[in-house]
Amino acid sequence: MDVLGGLLVVAGAAFLLLGGLGLVRMPDVFNRIQAGTKATTLGTLLSLAGFAGLQPDWTLKLFLIGLFVLFTNPLSSQVLARAAHRAGAEESPLTTVDVLNDEQGK
């Protein structure tokens, strides 16, 4: 059980690392939000699950933290994406289509 928990924590940390890497590598703010918030959500959930395996007494509280992260992360990334778009954030030249800009006549 301990080893399984430890492995889960390592896997979670690996996803956190991927999130950080995506944040550095992605070309514009929207892609950074995608890479940054998604990978870190799964990373956090996996780590919390791992800690629950290592420390079964904490399961309930870890579950609550996980639930909270699962609900708030997509919300904050959506609000951020909307704010960035409304503030006219620069899009990567790779961007193929932006219906929202077209409709607003930008």
Partner: peptide
Amino acid sequence: MAELLINLAAMITGVAFLLALWRF
């Protein structure tokens, strides 16, 4: 074994933190 894994994970998380800090 578990302790080793936790230390490894803590290090990886630290690197992730530094990458995000760089973007910040």
